[in-house]
Design a protein around this nucleic acid. Structure first.
Lengths: 227, 227
DNA sequence: CTGGCGCGTCAGGGTTGCGTCAAAGACGGT
DNA sequence: ACCGTCTTTGACGCAACCCTGACGCGCCAG
């Protein structure tokens, strides 16, 4: 059974979607704001997400990024905005499709089927949501890190950096790529940022920060996360 | 480089698409009817297809089915028809997205990026990026070298040199080419650099550095990497 | 035999890059 | 408006890397 997560703050839209989806034998969760949506997604691992960009608590694009931090689940965006910019922004943030309101239910369902269909066969190669080392654990979905069972507090930038590194476990990530993914495309040479934040990550996570086992420096090239 | 196949019978639309795509460094093929489209797709294996449903020789949906018979390449449908039925039919036939004309070029390009992005593999089913010899292995994706199972640390220049040689496994690479690829286009005669760094590579990777088996010198010409 | 050429090896010095610390600046919440 | 947290920026020491020059060896031609 296909699990759908519907995120929208307008009750009548949610109701219409839920009714139609349930009638077609989908399993449906609903959230009316971004925070609970991210929680639900982490807890239930839906097969597809329907997301309204106009949420009360946070920007819809932030929800997309939050999901894309740990999963490749198809995201179908709903929005009342017709402007090209909004669409481009959402799609480039990681959305798979963009439907403007008002929408035809038939079309939405067809787009949903298309999104689920192309995700299916890839579903076998599951992404690791929980990455463990001998001394700490990274939960990409819950955005939580534990060291010897105790929660570790990371700042947003620290987390983002960790996320990129863990996504490429074992692979070398160039300093340029790290800077552009964490700080934005206009960065690329500010390697001092990396030095500072790598030091903080190591101080918080490594057993011996001055002799890192998991956050390895490859001088002149980049950094590598080793399990 | 990403290969795009554009299928449309209206010359001005094809021209607009081709110009925009080429400007963004896509490799573009164009077909103006379904039959040649299917041929081109089979011959060139595009990474994404942009398909106008209104073709002179056959129904666009037939083109979709024809493609879906053997490939999962993302298909982005263009159409002047706004009716829900048409969209549903195309999407259920196997299309990935449906854009109605007139369309905004920005939006189309964003949808194209989204389609290409999700088709990209992550991590697992990768290309052949592992080169093995009897004594060491080179992982081009992770930028990692192991000798008898133990990691070997290479400096950036050493790695870069190795990369060029491995990319041309079995072929002779001229000293000029090596110098220009590793040190930059203004170099070409500083063969002493090569001597020093080849020696270091051999010392780190060869079983008997003074009698190299894999990093072969072709006197006066260049070097060759043999598996 | 001898000189020249190309290649391999080695070691020293200038330079770059990294880790660390500290402090100033920006931001958000109370 | 104040305060705490996070981010940015600068300075410094140290290690590693890159370049360079010198030397030895083998090969070939004169």
């Amino acid at each position: 059974m296909t699990r759908v997560l519907v995120i929208d703050d307008e009750p009548q839209i949610v109701r219409a979607l839920v009714i139609n989806l349930r009638a077609r034998k989908y399993e449906v969760d609903a959230a009316h704001d971004g925070a609970t949506a991210l929680e639900l997604a982490a807890a239930h691992h839906p097969d597809v997400v329907v997301l309204d960009l106009g949420l009360p608590d946070m920007d819809g694009v932030e929800v997309i990024k939050g999901l894309r931090g740990w999963t490749r689940v198809p995201i179908l965006v709903l929005s009342a905005r017709h402007t090209s910019d909004e669409k481009v922004e959402a799609l480039d943030a990681g959305a798979d499709d963009y439907v403007t309101k008002p929408f035809g239910m038939d079309e939405l369902l067809a787009r949903l089927r298309a999104a689920v269909r192309r995700a299916e066969p890839t579903g076998a190669g599951e992404d690791e949501v929980l990455v463990e080392t001998d001394e700490f654990t990274v939960d990409l979905a819950a955005k939580k890190v534990q060291k010897h069972g105790k929660d570790v507090r990371l700042t947003p930038t620290e987390w983002h950096l960790l996320e990129v590194l863990v996504h490429n476990t074992g692979r070398l990530v160039s300093q340029r790529q790290l800077l552009q993914e964490v700080w934005g495309p206009s960065y690329g040479t500010e390697t001092n940022y990396l030095r500072v934040y790598m030091a903080q990550l190591r101080r918080k996570l490594e057993a011996d920060p001055s002799h890192p086992k998991h956050f390895v420096t490859e001088p002149g090239m980049g950094y590598r996360f080793e399990r």
